[in-house]
Design a protein around this nucleic acid. Structure first.
Lengths: 209, 209
DNA sequence: TATCACTGACTAACGGGTTAGTCAATTGCA
DNA sequence: TGCAATTGACTAACCCGTTAGTCAGTGATA
């Protein structure tokens, strides 16, 4: 493949290699897990051999860590975009959750990173902690500030949610975990589930007297 | 250890062995995952050698499957006990969720089985599906029927929750996943989290006008 | 433009270490 | 002593990480 490609120059190929390897590694690691994945299989996905992978990454450990970093796409911009939205606090909360849903539960990449965080987290605790800092904490903070604003404006009532803003996001996690567990064997309608949760979270279950 | 024990007769020891092995296997598999776990380490936990394990279980695969089955303690009785409870629908819902919390998020055994379902689920899909049938589906059904009764009695309003009863349980899953990810590095107050979620789910976020 | 010395990305094969599963020998209870 | 439980050495296969050697591609020279 590499040899017959006339279009890509040697320099271009070399520049491309690291990303190619990291993406192939993602596929293998997510399907088989860290230990069961063979570096040789990662290489085979690109039509190269194990030795090539070791030219770019010193060990299997580092390959995994850099793969995780490379596949973690930041969504600070996503959270920022919510601030520009107008409408009621409820509307903005809904918009934020749907955006988070797209990024977390509906995106295979992020979902599989969640699986790896749980399955290999004890082996790579600093990866999990970094993931918390960069992804989980900002999302919870965004939800928290949105709820706070809603309370300040009088649209939302005060309640225990202020202490645990993440209860609002648990439905997203729920969908992601469900899909990781059952794949296509038990499909789940994500947006409908989110809306059911929003209906519950906004209006509550109790009859309004 | 086994050798020096004078109390247990040979027959007793032999009868005990399978359970002992399955419990040792649980410890090893949950810490290291399926592939990284060595059968020899499972045996070493009991002070015996690999050969003994193979005397009771034909392969590592079967050992894993039977371990999973052995560690899955049913909670049909738990769900049944809720039916005997009196009080308002809200009270009973709270009781059910706290019971489910104890069994799922607060119990290390169940929590680690969730981790294994996610990490090794693609390798053992029928284990995951059986787990759904025996644990997840009954729990969702119990919540659903409780909500339904609340609606019938007029205590609960009708809403999208009827279609997705599991949105009510997502906070439990949330706590379990959180603890699997961060262990003791980021403690989470389970009951307080549940109550925050219940406050949200019962009363809603919107100011009552 | 044609030639050719040189570079460096890649390969192939291997060393060293590990592990699932087997089975003949051993141990110690009844 | 007889027998069942257990051992642990063994095999066959596996896989990480290494390295000497290859050859396609590059660029300087005439």
């Amino acid at each position: 493949m590499t040899k017959t490609e006339k279009k890509t120059s040697r320099a271009e190929q070399k520049a491309r290699r690291p990303q190619e390897i990291l993406e192939a590694a993602f596929e293998e690691f997510t399907v088989k897990g860290y230990t069961a994945t063979r570096v040789e299989d990662v290489a085979a996905r690109l039509g190269v051999t194990k030795g090539t992978v070791y030219l770019y990454f010193p060990t299997k450990d580092v390959l995994f860590e850099e793969m995780f970093r490379h596949m973690s796409t930041p969504f600070a911009d996503l959270l920022a975009s919510v601030d520009t939205l107008g409408g009621s606090a409820a509307d903005r909360l809904r918009a934020l959750l749907l955006l988070a849903y797209d990024k977390i539960a509906d995106d295979r990449k992020t979902r599989e990173l969640l699986r790896l965080s749980l399955s290999e987290g004890t082996r790579f605790p600093d990866i999990v902690d970094r993931h918390h800092e960069e992804f989980i904490a900002p999302l919870i903070a965004a939800i928290g500030s949105l709820v706070e604003k809603g309370v300040a404006s009088g649209e939302f009532r005060e309640g225990a949610v202020a202490k645990f803003p993440d209860v609002v996001a648990s439905s997203i996690l729920h969908i992601a975990v469900w899909r990781l567990m059952f794949a296509d064997r038990r499909p789940i309608d994500g947006p409908a589930f989110i809306d059911a949760h929003l209906d519950l979270a906004l209006n509550g279950l109790l009859q309004r007297s």
